[in-house]
């Protein structure tokens, strides 16, 4: 399947558990992650930004599953 570099950005509370859960979603699918940044934004929320090479269909599924994580308020992806 055709893979491309996608950046997924999720916003939520600052909890290491969330970082772990997001990482697991990539680990489960054996997707190579190039960078994973957890940072604080101006509103005091945390931003989880993952850059990885994968088919778009997998990224869409991952985005939907990240949305189910408790204490994530929004998530989206881009190229």
């Amino acid at each position: 399947m055709e893979t491309q570099k996608f950046v997924v950005t999720a916003v939520g509370k600052n909890r290491l558990e969330i970082l772990n859960r997001i990482a697991s979603l990539y680990l489960q699918r054996n997707i190579p992650v190039e960078s994973f940044i957890l940072s604080k934004d101006r509103d005091g929320n945390s931003r989880y930004k993952i850059c990885a090479q994968a088919p778009e269909s997998s990224i869409i599924k991952i985005v939907n599953q990240i949305n189910n994580i408790v204490d994530i308020s929004k998530v989206d992806y881009s190229i």
């Binding site: 558990e17 772990n20 859960r21 489960q28 189910n68 408790v70």
Partner: peptide
Amino acid sequence: TIGITLPITKWS
């Protein structure tokens, strides 16, 4: 326990 059950829980 939390680490072990992360992928199989809705929340912990």
